[in-house]
Write a protein that binds this DNA or RNA. Structure first.
Length: 578
DNA sequence: GCCGTTTTCGGCCCGACTGTTTTCAGTCG
């Protein structure tokens, strides 16, 4: 997680440089380094020791040195020095939407304002209007910005954004003159949280679409609307940005608005070197301004000599290099998935019956579903005693006689404080599929939690470690574990690691999952469904898997039933032979 | 501050919207 801390620190350095009005390209270098570190999935410490930090894109000699300094001392002297050159509290001003470096500079130098409170008081006292270029409207905008900042600029998770996006798309598709519609932005890239919903439409008459949109029931407040784009807030308080382009530019606009920004910047740099120019209207020859594509997204990449890159990979985290070398992964898709694991029913804390789950699995074309209700210790979730577990196993065997989708006899077994499992091995041996998970003792030190997980993985019957870091977005931070050590043990013991598809969990997260996949660990997407409809959340988990560059061969769900049984059996055999 | 199938120096992505000083700087994505 050091890369995350460093990413934030470099971003702060960029803020300060920007406030001081320094070289824009130097600022950009810090921003790019920040972004790349935030999405970096490798082992920073190891790279530092091997002297490989400069292999990270955007990291040169200077920043490599700053990273080394931070990893060894926990500080960056240059940043501390920079902080002393700006008024205290000023960085907070820059957080206000609508306040950039120029405004902050003006406020600090002319009115000695350097905190949000001071700024608010000054607006209420109308002292801002004394500044050049400040009138009523601008004051109002800043007040609105402060309000948004206070609300915490909440990002919503994908589970909320996807249904809204589906409704928006249906609405837009029905408007007269609209020929194509798509999500864009972080939503299309399947980021785990979304700042605002980006939607793109193609129409020969964009202004009419914008008007219909801002007058629709989706809109409770218009933040801004021109002839080709509009930003609104829905009654639920979600910001939606709509762009409308001519059909011949749809591909270019889709590419452009899907981002990420870093991916696009790299793409345009590449274009310049090839004598081309990219924008949201198409791809053009720089010299003649002749347009050579833009109706389809593929054309944009093709013009640069690249294959189409799946949106989930567009984070400037190696996808352009892979595309150039013809080594893009064949990402896992829903049609590769043959089953789901970690399913709860009325036997513990789920709300639907075994039979209904079997039918729902068959309806999705699944070969199998692993039923994994809670184990005996987890009283509040109606964890099952051993006799009750055996009763459920008998029931499953009966259902399997007539079910198209096979139910696997499984359990979500608590990993107890010392790494011992909540059922004895003789009981685990009766099960087809054992999920191990931690539900208690989250506050143990890192070393102890890590040892606890590794001990569980050494158990021959444990197939899968569920939600390995235990995080709940907005509620509980991940508990501290040594991921590299856990993945090493997973690889050695033949234990799979879960990508839990529950929208608040998404655990492993994208970067951790990529680290696991690069370590050669088998992964599994499971929905942790507690009801029938939650089985659909598999697509959210697959989004994470795709962001982690996972191919079908690296995902347990893609094995046919026989192959799955073989994979589970291999670990049991090898462990018992020792 | 980074980076290289034009370059180890001299470049570095592009456009919409807003408010306003009415021609463009500032901010955002």
């Amino acid at each position: 997680m050091k890369q995350h801390e460093l990413g934030l620190l470099f971003d702060q350095m960029a803020d300060i440089l920007e406030y001081r009005g320094e070289n824009i390209f130097r600022i950009r270098a810090y921003r790019r380094a920040s972004q790349n570190l935030l999405s970096f999935s490798g082992d920073l410490e190891r790279m530092m020791q091997a002297g490989e930090l400069q292999e990270i894109s955007g990291i040169g000699p200077d920043l490599a040195e700053k990273i080394t300094e931070y990893l060894s001392t926990g500080r960056i002297a240059a940043l501390e020095k920079m902080r002393r050159t700006i008024p205290k509290g000023l960085l907070e001003l820059l957080e206000i939407p609508g306040v950039g470096p120029k405004t902050a500079q003006l406020l600090a130098q002319r009115l000695r304002i350097s905190t949000v409170q001071q700024l608010e008081a000054a607006i209420r006292a109308h002292t801002l209007s004394k500044l050049p270029g400040f009138q009523k409207k601008k004051e109002e905008n800043i007040l609105k910005g402060i309000e948004i900042l206070r609300k915490g600029r909440e990002r919503m998770h994908l589970g909320l954004a996807l249904p809204l996006a589906a409704q928006l798309i249906e609405f837009l598709r029905k408007l007269p003159g609209v020929t194509r519609v798509s999500t864009a932005g972080s939503l299309r890239r399947m980021r785990e949280t979304i700042g605002d919903c980006d939607v793109l439409a193609a129409s020969a008459r964009p202004a009419a679409v914008i008007e219909a949109f801002t007058k629709s029931h989706f809109c409770s407040r218009v933040l801004g609307a021109g002839t080709t784009k509009a930003s609104i807030v829905t009654p639920q308080g979600i910001q939606v940005d709509l762009r409308v382009v001519k059909p011949e530019s749809f591909g270019a606009a889709l590419q452009y608005f899907t981002g990420s920004k870093e991916h696009n910047v790299r793409l345009r740099e590449l274009a310049i070197r090839k004598g081309l120019k990219l924008n949201e209207y198409g791809v053009f020859r720089t010299r003649t301004n002749a347009r050579i594509g833009g109706r389809e997204e593929e054309e944009m990449y093709k013009a640069l000599g690249l294959p189409w890159i799946p949106p989930e990979l567009r984070e400037d985290s190696g996808e352009l290099e892979a595309a150039k070398a013809g080594r893009l992964p064949r990402l896992v898709e829903l049609r590769d998935v043959r089953g789901d694991f970690h399913i709860h029913t009325t036997w513990s804390d789920g709300s639907d019956e075994l039979e209904e789950m079997a039918k729902a699995g068959a309806a999705r074309g699944y070969e199998y579903l692993a039923i994994c209700d809670h184990s005996q210790s987890l009283k509040f979730a109606h964890g099952m005693s051993i006799p009750r577990l055996r009763q459920q196993m008998r029931k499953i065997q009966v259902i399997n006689r007539s079910s198209k989708c096979r139910l696997l006899m499984g359990s979500e077994v608590d990993i107890l404080a010392e790494g011992r499992m909540d059922y004895p091995d003789r009981v685990l041996a009766e099960l087809d599929f054992v999920v191990g998970s931690i539900h208690s003792g989250f506050t143990q030190p890192k070393a102890m939690l890590t040892r606890r997980l590794i001990t569980a993985m050494r158990n021959p019957y444990v197939t899968l470690i569920a939600h390995p870091t235990g995080r709940l977005m907005g509620q509980r931070d991940p508990y501290p574990i040594d991921l590299a050590a856990v993945f090493k043990a997973a690889k050695e013991t033949g234990t799979a690691m879960e990508i839990n598809a529950f929208p608040k969990r998404l655990d492993l997260c994208d970067t951790a999952a990529r680290q696991a996949q690069e370590s050669g660990v088998m992964l599994a997407v499971s929905t942790d469904s507690h009801s029938l409809d939650q089985l659909d959340q598999i697509s959210i988990g697959l989004g994470v898997a795709r962001r982690a560059w996972i191919e079908p061969s690296q995902l347990l769900n893609c094995l046919p039933l026989a192959g799955l049984r073989e994979w589970i059996g291999r670990k049991r055999d090898e462990a018992l032979r020792r």
